[in-house]
């Protein structure tokens, strides 16, 4: 992965010349982004307008920062933003760590059929919709009627009293993290497995000649090769750290207000606040706020990554 050490004038001219056809490969994607991502952005002005259905996006009157009021004056903004960041950090950290460990572990399996079985299994949870996850979680934690559940039954076996999980906000960041890991670690481990596939054999051969054990090779050799992918994944998540995982969180927590102190994120709060009003201006305003913050964070992270290693920076 190094640039060619020494180029002749002829080579340099030739590679510059080749550049002119390279961009053709990007054309389809560029058209896509223009049509579906950039053109609609003109609609973002609605964040600063008092949206009226008849007047449409461009005819509605301006109302400055009025659309942002409902969120920032609620007194909850700090806690909600805090939850959003905290939960996202938990999710991404736990998911990546487990994904790496799983990829390394799966890589060690020798038996072909077993390995295929494991690889297929860990990917399964990704397909299950959040609503079904919510139902299963309820079966585990609450049973029917809210007083039972598999977990409580097990606690009772050890003479520990049942816990009414859906009325205790405390444990939920951990519970949600477990759910996310279960849902996504397999998905990410596929990416990591593909990365392990790309590691040159010579490196392992050298390691074996040095007498390294498999465990040492896994952590000294394999792991460093996974760093670039990890950096990419983390950087991609950093920008979205202000965007809560609405789909999963809402499916599980729903309208259970008791749990909001530790699980309410920006997206769920906005959804609840605006679902009867249907005010597109307010929804767009908060979305814009999340995007702007995300940009600032990513810019910061990109600069930071640039300092650490030029090779793995995104831009």
């Amino acid at each position: 992965m190094t640039t060619a050490p020494h180029r002749t004038m002829r080579q340099r001219r030739r590679s510059l010349h080749r550049d002119n056809t390279l961009w053709i490969l990007a054309i389809p994607a560029v058209i896509f982004f223009f049509v579906f991502s950039y053109a609609p952005l003109v609609g973002l002005v609605v964040a600063f307008k008092d949206y009226n259905i008849r007047d449409g996006i461009f005819g509605s009157p301006w109302n400055g920062l009025e659309n942002f009021r409902f969120f920032f004056e609620s007194g909850n903004a700090g806690r909600i933003i805090g939850n959003t960041i905290f939960l996202n950090v938990l999710f991404i950290t736990a998911t990546i760590v487990v994904a790496i460990l799983m990829a390394i572990a799966i890589n060690e399996i020798r038996h072909t059929m077993l390995r295929k079985f494991v690889q297929s299994s860990v990917f399964l949870p990704y397909f299950i919709s959040p609503i079904v996850i919510s139902i299963i979680l309820q079966a585990f934690l609450a049973g029917v009627g809210g007083q039972g559940g598999v977990v409580n039954d097990m606690l009772n076996v050890f003479s520990i009293p049942s816990v009414n999980w859906y009325s205790e906000p405390g444990p939920w960041p951990v519970i949600l993290t477990i759910v996310k890991v279960w849902q996504l670690a397999g998905y990410y481990s596929v990416i990591y497995l593909a990365a392990i596939t790309a590691i040159p054999e010579e490196v392992y051969e050298a390691g074996m000649l040095d007498g390294a054990s498999r465990g040492q090779m896994a952590f000294r050799i394999t792991l460093p090769y996974l760093v670039p992918v990890t950096v990419i994944l983390v950087m991609l998540s950093v920008g979205r750290i202000f965007f809560g995982d609405f789909g999963t969180i809402y499916a599980i927590i729903g309208d259970n207000g008791v749990l909001y102190p530790t699980t309410d994120v920006i997206d769920t709060y906005v959804f609840r606040a605006l679902r009867t009003a249907g005010d597109f201006g307010m929804t767009a305003a908060i979305g814009l706020f999340q995007s702007v913050v995300g940009f600032v964070l990513v810019a910061g992270a990109a600069l930071l990554a640039r300092r650490i290693t030029r090779e793995t920076s995104l831009f």
Binding site: D19, Y38, G43, L44, F295
Partner: peptide, 25 residues
């Protein structure tokens, strides 16, 4: 080494953070 690389990367990244929402879509 291509001078398209960085602009395209930025162009690709922005939509991850910025969307116009349901109505314009």
């Amino acid at each position: 080494e291509s001078h398209w690389s960085r602009p395209l990367a930025i162009m690709t990244y922005i939509p991850m953070l910025l969307t116009a929402g349901l109505v314009p879509f």
